[in-house]
Computed example of a mutant assay.
Amino acid sequence: MKNSNIKNIIFDLGDVILNIDVPVASLSFAKLSGREQAEILTLFKENDLFRQFETGLLDEASFRNLIRKLVDSPDWTDEMIDTAWNSLLLDMPVERVELLKTLRSKYRLFLLSNTSSIHITQVNKILEAATGIKNLDELFDKVYLSYEMGIMKPDPEIYLQVLKEQNIKAEETLFLDDNSDNIKSAAKLGIDTILVQKPVTILEYLKDYAV
């Protein structure tokens, strides 16, 4: 049901706007290395690889070098690593982009994503191939990315930073994410929330807002 108080909408990226399949990345690295997927996941988790890269503690070169070290594959090229890392990124449905264009005429729109620079470069390529739009910045009033902010959802501070910087009120803001922890954290701050769950998409969740 539409909340008539809403003036601002914050979107997550993965599985909200862009379709993704997270396990595909570890599977890609497993195939490249000849190791089991479970072993790859354990190596990445034990070394906090995702969080370090997605909060900017690792730059692209350091990220690639750490992967080479963890899987003992010093001969892997940057392109091999990037391709495996990006394999979890699927498609950008055009109808979701069209919805964003419609909503932007009525609301202030923001993107808030836990992501890395390598992923964002590829996402923009996917976006351009699907729609002709070259950059996510063209769809939102402001794009907030964890690796640039140095913080990740569900840390409450990441939402507070967006609210403060944009001078917007929590009770006038709607946040959509596919992760329940991220939703709970935002809701505790008074932000209205929608947990996006497949197979339902933002087209259904936001149909009343697009009218």
Rank of each mutant, 00 (worst) to 15 (best):
residue 204 E to P: 06
residue 98 E to F: 02
residue 145 L to H: 03
residue 28 S to I: 12
residue 115 T to K: 01
residue 104 R to C: 04
residue 179 N to I: 03
residue 41 L to F: 09
residue 91 D to H: 13
residue 157 E to K: 04
residue 125 K to T: 15
residue 113 S to N: 02
residue 72 D to M: 08
residue 39 E to A: 13
residue 199 P to Y: 07
residue 123 V to T: 09
residue 45 K to R: 06
residue 194 I to F: 03
residue 153 K to E: 00
residue 60 E to Q: 12
residue 21 D to S: 11
residue 56 G to Q: 05
residue 202 I to F: 15
residue 110 F to K: 12
residue 148 E to R: 11
residue 77 T to M: 07
residue 126 I to W: 11
residue 151 I to E: 00
residue 184 K to V: 09
residue 53 F to S: 10
residue 39 E to H: 14
residue 4 S to A: 15
residue 40 I to L: 05
residue 58 L to V: 06
residue 122 Q to I: 07
residue 36 E to W: 04
residue 90 L to E: 13
residue 103 L to P: 06
residue 136 L to S: 10
residue 26 S to Y: 01
residue 17 I to L: 14
residue 39 E to P: 15
residue 80 M to T: 11
residue 137 D to G: 14
residue 35 R to T: 05
residue 119 H to R: 04
residue 42 T to W: 02
residue 158 I to R: 00
residue 153 K to Y: 02
residue 105 S to Q: 15
residue 137 D to T: 13
residue 203 L to E: 07
residue 2 K to T: 10
residue 86 N to I: 04
residue 82 D to R: 09
residue 7 K to V: 15
residue 161 Q to F: 10
residue 86 N to P: 09
residue 38 A to K: 11
residue 25 A to I: 12
residue 125 K to Q: 15
residue 130 A to P: 01
residue 25 A to F: 11
residue 132 G to C: 06
residue 205 Y to A: 10
residue 161 Q to I: 11
residue 202 I to M: 13
residue 72 D to Q: 13
residue 83 T to G: 08
residue 43 L to Q: 02
residue 189 L to C: 03
residue 95 E to R: 06
residue 156 P to Y: 13
residue 75 D to T: 14
residue 199 P to S: 14
residue 43 L to W: 03
residue 51 R to T: 10
residue 177 D to Y: 04
residue 187 A to D: 15
residue 49 L to H: 00
residue 209 Y to H: 12
residue 99 L to N: 10
residue 194 I to R: 05
residue 2 K to I: 15
residue 168 I to N: 01
residue 55 T to K: 01
residue 197 Q to W: 10
residue 171 E to G: 01
residue 149 M to S: 04
residue 126 I to S: 13
residue 16 V to C: 06
residue 162 V to W: 01
residue 153 K to S: 00
residue 75 D to N: 14
residue 13 L to H: 11
residue 118 I to M: 04
residue 55 T to S: 01
residue 150 G to Q: 01
residue 66 L to Q: 06
residue 191 I to G: 00
residue 160 L to H: 00
residue 113 S to G: 03
residue 78 D to M: 05
residue 34 G to I: 08
residue 168 I to A: 05
residue 148 E to P: 05
residue 186 A to G: 08
residue 145 L to T: 09
residue 55 T to P: 00
residue 14 G to T: 10
residue 18 L to M: 13
residue 36 E to Y: 06
residue 120 I to W: 08
residue 152 M to G: 00
residue 167 N to V: 14
residue 132 G to A: 07
residue 182 N to H: 04
residue 58 L to M: 04
residue 50 F to H: 02
residue 192 D to T: 11
residue 179 N to H: 09
residue 174 L to H: 01
residue 129 A to P: 10
residue 42 T to P: 00
residue 196 V to R: 07
residue 41 L to H: 12
residue 133 I to Y: 12
residue 88 L to M: 15
residue 176 L to S: 11
residue 164 K to T: 02
residue 79 E to K: 09
residue 67 I to H: 08
residue 16 V to P: 08
residue 121 T to E: 12
residue 85 W to G: 02
residue 199 P to T: 08
residue 105 S to R: 15
residue 10 I to L: 07
residue 118 I to H: 01
residue 201 T to F: 09
residue 114 N to Q: 00
residue 38 A to W: 08
residue 113 S to L: 02
residue 68 R to W: 07
residue 192 D to H: 15
residue 48 D to S: 03
residue 88 L to V: 06
residue 89 L to I: 04
residue 149 M to I: 07
residue 193 T to W: 04
residue 193 T to N: 03
